[in-house]
């Protein structure tokens, strides 16, 4: 009985969409282990765990949060380019409240999250109620948003001292960074909401064919709006932990380029940019691949500025691998090569 299920599990794994992302991650880990046999070591010190795996998970937390939201937005056939700017806004809102007022930590967090939800509401309204293309609608906030964050910060980097707030970014719980717990929490809640209710199915239906979904009585506009609210929420939380990590809000640099990381993670997870089928676990696997890549570049001594280049190439490569035309060309070439 047991062997039978494990057999079918292995079979299913080979066929499943997990196989390629998993293989990529494993390949990178093996590469790192060859460079440094202790790459995966974890040790316990001063009440917390240390080591590359923990470090990778901790550093990937902001992108992981963004990727959760981005997965759902992309599944509805949209995109959110404003997540980096929303991170800056949420960080600025929290930092200024911490510096200028005496309000409780809870209020600060609520205000930060609320600012993200407001941004999501604006994006969602532009996309689903005004019918503006998602790229343009969110591009508006992508650039305006940083201006707003700058305005809140009056052009400065606003720093603060608040143990409770900082704990969110650099503290630990049961020896594991709080950021990892937060990602886990958001992941579990969103997974429950999307897969234990019909919401996930509705999102996929809208993403595959929003017109047919309307004929089914699904309110496609509401579904899209919810997706942008979710990215707003996730971006705000990512902004909060980023601000907490550096004890300050740097409107120019926080979350810079992270929108591509999040999109790349979703694409690495095998989701189509045109919308439809989605899987948050797969996107998170994509996040791990990206962060392991970052760490690999750092550990192997390559200049970190190569990051952008490698990621840009990775996006194009994955998109090409997803494209039917490219696959046909490749198999055609392979066929020719075998014949000659």
């Amino acid at each position: 009985m047991n062997t039978e299920t494990s057999h079918s599990f292995a079979e299913r794994l080979l066929k499943s969409r997990y196989i390629w992302p998993l293989a990529a991650l494993l390949l990178m880990l093996i590469f790192n282990l060859l460079l440094d046999a202790s790459f995966l070591d974890i040790h316990f010190d001063n009440g917390r765990f240390y080591g590359n795996p923990i470090d990778i998970l901790h550093r990937s937390a902001p992108v992981a949060l963004l990727a959760i939201g981005m997965t759902v937005v992309i599944a509805t056939g949209g995109i959110d380019l404003s997540v980096g700017a929303v991170m800056a806004i949420a960080g600025a809102v929290c930092a200024n409240l911490l510096v200028a007022t005496d309000v409780s930590l809870f209020t600060v967090l609520v205000a930060g999250i609320a600012s993200g939800l407001l941004c999501g509401l604006i994006n969602g309204a532009l996309v689903s109620y005004m019918g503006i293309q998602p790229i343009i609608a969110t591009l508006l906030l992508m650039v305006t948003g940083r201006g707003i964050a700058q305005l809140l910060n009056d052009g400065q980097i606003v720093t603060f001292q608040h143990a409770g707030f900082s704990w969110l970014g650099s503290g630990t719980l049961l020896g594991i960074p709080v950021t990892i717990w937060l990602v886990l929490l958001v992941f579990i809640i969103s997974q429950l909401m999307l897969r234990r209710t019909a919401l996930g199915l509705f999102v996929e239906a809208v993403g595959c064919n929003s017109s047919a979904s309307r004929y089914l009585g699904i309110n496609d506009r509401t579904v899209k709006l919810m997706a942008y609210l979710l990215t707003g929420f996730c971006a705000a939380l990512a902004g909060i932990i980023s601000a907490a990590d550096i004890n300050g809000s740097d409107a120019n640099n926080v979350g810079l380029w992270l929108e591509l990381d999040a999109i790349l993670a979703v694409v690495l997870g095998g989701a189509a940019l045109s919308g439809g089928r989605f899987s948050i676990p797969l996107s998170l696997l994509g996040v791990l691949i990206i962060q392991t890549l970052n760490t690999t570049i750092m550990v192997s001594g390559m200049p970190s500025k190569l990051n952008l280049l490698i990621k840009a190439l990775a996006v194009v490569l994955v998109l090409l691998l997803q494209s039917d035309i490219f696959r046909k060309q490749i198999s055609g070439l392979a066929g020719k090569w075998r014949h000659s």
């Binding site: 999109i263 280049l309 998109l319 035309i325």
Partner: peptide, 26 residues
Amino acid sequence: LIYFYKLQPFIVTLAGMFFARGLATT
């Protein structure tokens, strides 16, 4: 890339943006 592989212009040029920016920084 946009024409032959029917990729969306925004993602191709977004990747292009990162590539060019990365190259410039390098």
